[in-house]
Design a protein around this nucleic acid. Structure first.
Lengths: 190, 190
DNA sequence: ATTGTTCTAGAATTAATATTCTAATATGGC
DNA sequence: GCCATATTAGAATATTAATTCTAGAACAAT
């Protein structure tokens, strides 16, 4: 029927992360230079820069939250610790996506001019993670705020010391896990 | 001998923070609109946007580090806890400056095109804080990495949940202090 | 009051980047 | 091989924001 496309979304998403890591900002010119995909093709596929960034964000956030929720909802005794460690582990196994999540504000990537559909997809990804967090906190009798800090904010802060260009040292993991335990108040240490 | 100026640096620095809080970016147009100071005056005083941003950063970082080091070097038993709490306290007492420090990457504010003098001032402010941290860690037998996390990264992550627009709840403080204690209690002793 | 100097003002310019547009180009089914 | 259609290409344009420039205004010393 028609010509098939010559590039994958993932190529573009990776270039977004790489541009972000290098310069702290994303320009379409940089993506064109990085990937060899022409500016016309980018607009054909994504319609706007905003949409491209939002899709990149959604892709990254879904990948991360899958891991995060898997740990959180595993039912294991150490589900909390595992969820806290999902962040450094994600950085190690999926660096490009981690850079997108860690090195920019969501607001830059999910502006209000994108399609309602995309806005909803992002909002619902966030909502689902929040709900999972709440359920976890409720089951264990932890404070939701404490869980937000211990499971999300602190692990993210820890990896941000190294991203975008340095590897995340293994030593971080014990710190993150201990901080989580201290915050939710169980007090035990590894 | 000559005309005196009609505005203070602090007015401009505050507008930078406010523009940052509102839109996540700083444009000179926004500062002009916010303050009523003309674009010509801004260039007369600061020479370039980069220099203005770097001066804003330096102003904020000095104000914060004064508090931080005061706590860290107090010699008190709980000097670490107090240094960790310097971050949420600074947000409460000096919100505009806290927003500058918390809501943007240093790289955006201290680019390489600013004057050597300014570059050095920023570098030396950072160095002094790092040195203070190292001294503290060495005296107490804590790991430097653990201190970086517990005294800087985690407190910052905690307040970032609320900045730029929400007040920092008092409950944060206990979390931050506990996380610090948990982290230095587990790190390898130097 | 005059004068030299610094400061203010904002229009004009430049620079950087996003977006649009038209013309090719490739693909797969017929 | 030809056609219909989706895709690519990148030059041209529009947009946004930074920077420069020239004129005028305020101040302080004399």
């Amino acid at each position: 029927m028609a010509r098939s496309s010559t590039f994958e979304d993932s190529l573009i998403f990776a270039a977004v992360g790489s541009s972000l890591a290098r310069t702290g900002a994303v320009t379409l010119q940089a993506i064109v230079a990085d990937t060899g995909v022409s500016i016309g093709s980018l607009y054909h596929r994504y319609g706007s820069r905003e949409t491209l960034l939002a899709m990149t964000w959604l892709d990254a956030v879904r990948a991360f939250q899958a891991k995060f929720r898997e740990a959180l909802e595993s039912g294991a005794d150490d589900a909390g610790e595992r969820a806290a460690l999902a962040t450094p582990q994600f950085c190690r196994t999926d660096n490009a996506r981690a850079i997108v999540l860690a090195c920019c504000r969501q607001a830059e990537f999910a502006s209000s001019t994108i399609s309602g559909e995309l806005q909803e997809a992002i909002a619902s990804a966030n909502d689902e993670a929040i709900m999972a967090l709440r359920r976890f906190a409720a089951t264990r009798g932890y404070s939701v705020d404490a869980c937000r800090l211990g499971l999300v904010a602190f692990p993210l802060a820890a990896v941000r010391l190294y991203l975008p260009d340095k590897p995340i040292p293994a030593s971080i993991d014990a710190y993150v896990a201990n901080a989580f335990r201290a915050i939710v108040g169980t007090g035990e240490r590894v």
